[in-house]
Write a protein that binds this DNA or RNA. Structure first.
Length: 433
RNA sequence: GGCAGGUUGCCCGAGUGGCCAAAGGGAGCGGACUGUAAAUCCGCCGGCUCAGCCUACGUUGGUUCGAACCCAACACCUGCCA
């Protein structure tokens, strides 16, 4: 077991502790032996996204230090909805939530070990919430919650002051999460809860409840909100949220997300997400400062996380694809296998010959593949010198691909700007492979 | 309920009868550039069958050769008074 000071120091150095209860008390508890701790994930979508990765990896870090994780998937809280600052959530059906519980659970499992003395346990708060009657909830739990305190919580007060207001349903959310901590304390001796800083109000609801009911002081710490230097929301790209599910965000897109991290953010991301040692991370920071254009730090981060989330094999495939697509060599020189796997990662469009045997113009293809939102934009891209066919700049607006351009006799690679790529398949419909 | 002001492109915001697809700023996009990052500079930034046409300045209708701009009604927002 890693000693407590080392563990806490490492978490602090990584910037993973944004707010916490008494850290000295937590150190003592961690030193006294393996601590059982938990973090909850609500099934609000069929997959978690990279924002949740901070929580998952924090669970993993603590387990690697010898402590015992409980990963809670909120079958009950997912039916209620955690108050968002701006708007009331739409309720999902019980079937949907149940299905998402299964998916989210399967998504978390690979990061934890279910063997050994500190084996992880998956729990679902529906198990203790569903059987409870309204009377039990109001008498046994509700009596310990002061409304004055509940409305003071940031999530609730923001909503009370907003036009959206807040439903009793969402107002009650903190009671359920507080109850979870109490229940896990009773069932598993859980004395530490982690979560995102936006959850702090909910974490403290549990601490208070345990204190009132059990007379015991438990611990909690919250990870910071991961931010981006340009002020936009972390975990989003032009094409939407970066999900952990390979079907929803391809491993290639996932890898590209990290490769494209801003220089100003990459050091912080390494600390939060990477399992590299402090020395290794500091070396990467130095390399980034010295030669930013090489972007070694981004590559290291993308490599590690793609392997962690999608596996070594996928990592190798997307790295090879990225090198092929962004490399210096001519695409025509690539071996067919590498070419095909690289193309598999890209958005795809199909092209057919016109009656006279010619292929559609590059402008047409840019619009069709979605690389440019309209034909006007595609035309502009060409006139600005930002359109490429097989990584060669297209210089005239009426340029057509020629048969000689077809890679492997069939494919075209289109690019707009530095990093937006798409594949065009020219095979006759029905004749492909 | 009364009075006053407002509603412009992704956002902020100028424009009060033709020179307005609409100033300026932000965001975004492209290029240069040191590998897909940043900074900086330059260019672009409604659509199309692109020297032209179409759509667009809250909604609907009207005045006019011509309207984002004038008039009327409606909707929503803001301020002051009750």
């Amino acid at each position: 077991m890693t000693n407590a000071s080392e563990l806490i120091d490492d978490l602090q150095w990584r910037g993973l502790i944004a707010v916490s209860t008494d850290l000295e008390a937590l150190r003592e508890a961690l030193d006294a032996g393996p601590v059982t701790y938990y973090c909850g994930f609500d099934p609000t979508a069929p997959s978690l996204h990279i924002g949740s990765l901070v929580q998952i990896l924090t669970l993993r870090r603590l387990q690697q230090a010898g402590h015992r994780p409980l990963a809670l998937v909120g079958g009950a809280t997912g039916l209620i909805g955690d108050p968002k600052p701006n708007a009331e959530r739409t309720l999902n059906s019980a079937e949907t939530v149940a299905q998402w519980v299964g998916r989210v659970r399967a998504q978390i499992e690979p990061y934890l070990s279910f063997e050994g003395d500190n084996a992880a346990v998956m729990v679902n708060n529906l198990d203790w919430t569903a059987p409870m009657s309204a009377i039990d909830l109001l008498r046994d739990i509700g009596k310990h919650f002061r409304v004055n305190k509940m409305i003071a919580k940031e999530a609730v007060s923001a909503r009370l002051n907003s036009d959206a207001g807040i439903s009793y349903t969402e107002f009650s959310y903190q009671i359920l999460q507080g109850m979870d901590f109490l229940e896990l304390y009773r069932r598993h001796g859980c004395v530490l809860q982690t979560g995102g800083s936006d959850q702090w109000g909910n974490l403290t609801a549990g601490l208070d409840l345990i204190h009132r009911v059990e007379g015991r002081t438990a611990h909690a710490f919250a990870t910071p909100l991961v931010t981006k230097a340009d002020g936009t929301k972390f975990g989003k790209t032009e094409s939407g949220t970066v999900w952990l599910d390979a079907e929803m965000t391809s491993p290639y897109a996932f890898y590209q997300f990290w490769v494209n991290a801003d220089d100003r953010d990459v050091a912080a991301y390494l600390k939060v997400f990477s399992f590299r040692t402090r020395e290794e991370i500091e070396d990467l920071e130095k390399a980034a400062a010295k030669r930013p254009a090489a972007r070694e730090a981004q590559r290291a981060l993308a490599d590690e996380l793609t392997a962690l989330v999608h596996g070594q094999q996928q990592r190798d495939a997307v790295v090879a694809a990225s090198q092929a697509l962004f490399g210096r060599g001519a695409l025509a020189d690539l071996d067919p296998a590498t070419l095909l796997s690289a193309l598999a990662e890209l958005p795809r469009a199909r092209a057919v010959r016109a009656a006279d045997g010619s292929w559609p113009t590059v402008v047409e293809l840019l619009a069709q593949t979605g690389l440019s939102p309209s034909r006007s934009a595609a035309r502009r891209a060409v006139s600005e010198g930002g359109a490429y066919l097989n990584n060669v700049r297209v210089t005239t607006e009426d340029a057509h691909p020629a048969d000689a351009d077809l890679l492997g006799g069939r494919w075209l690679v289109l690019r707009r700007g530095k990093r937006n790529l798409a594949a065009v398949d020219t095979a006759e419909p029905g004749t492909e492979d």
